[in-house]
């Protein structure tokens, strides 16, 4: 049900998060430390969040990936229309690049043709063959303030996500066990999931006696939901 990754004191100890995500040792993505992603580039192009490079060796060029994070004009227009912004840069050449952002923990997820839905600001890097798009996320955006739309990542490759406040947690969802998570702790989800908003607004909120958890996200179906220890 719950698989918690290694504590950050253990240095770069390998961490396993469920059975769905693991360190991509045959891919070029690896964790140099729990908060630092290292990517070996050899002639291919990867995309990473703008400004997230902390160091590199070799011959690597950094270029703005274009409107919409480098997925063409249509995706760019959709992003502009929906406000689900994604600022990515394309890194190409030969060498090793290290990425990190605000000391947040990094999680590496491999995709084999399926789709990952993620908050755009939690995306750190994407490998070559993945495409991003804007997906309708239900009426969740009303509450979380992150827009009605979310970013979907599809294809074969590796995604690196950020987790604020510590290592992320992967929670499994099955039809018997639907999952409710705090909207501010939600990072990403994958699988056949149906997402709805749970509200807990009652007369208590009006008199200031709320539980502080007025809006939550409920997931039904089959899949995995990633959450972070810190609330945005």
């Amino acid at each position: 049900m719950l698989a918690e990754p290694a504590d950050d004191q253990q240095g770069d100890r390998e961490r396993e998060i469920g059975s769905c995500a693991r360190i991509a040792d045959m891919q070029s993505f690896r964790l140099e430390s729990p908060r630092m992603l290292a990517v070996d580039i050899s002639g291919d192009t990867i995309r990473a969040a703008t400004g997230s490079m902390v160091a590199y060796t070799g011959q690597v060029q950094f270029k703005h990936a274009g409107m919409g994070g480098g997925d063409g004009l249509l995706a760019g227009l959709k992003r502009r229309a929906t406000g689900e912004s994604l600022s990515m840069m394309a890194c190409s050449g030969t060498g090793t690049v290290w990425f990190a952002k605000d000391a947040m923990d990094v999680i590496i997820i491999e995709l084999a043709g399926d789709t990952l839905k993620a908050e755009s600001e939690q995306l750190l890097a994407l490998s070559d063959k993945l495409t991003t798009d804007v997906a309708f996320a239900g009426l969740r955006g009303m509450s979380s303030g992150q827009g009605l739309f979310t970013t979907s990542v599809t294809g074969y490759g590796t995604v690196a996500l950020l987790s604020a406040g510590g290592p992320p947690i992967a929670l499994e969802v099955t039809p018997q066990y639907p999952l409710v998570v705090d909207k501010d702790a939600y990072i990403a989800s994958r699988g056949q999931l149906n997402q709805t908003v749970v509200t807990d607004v009652s007369w208590r909120n009006l008199i200031g006696e709320s539980s502080g958890e007025a809006f939550s996200l409920r997931f039904d179906g089959h899949g995995v939901v990633y959450i972070q220890p810190e609330e945005r």
Binding site: D8, M36, M53, V54, A55, T57, W98, A100, M104
Partner: peptide
């Protein structure tokens, strides 16, 4: 967020933010 140690050698320069 901790540090990583990147070796600098004759192989080429290391560029750092």
């Amino acid at each position: 967020g901790g540090t990583i140690a990147v070796p600098v050698g004759p192989a080429g320069p290391v560029s750092v933010d």
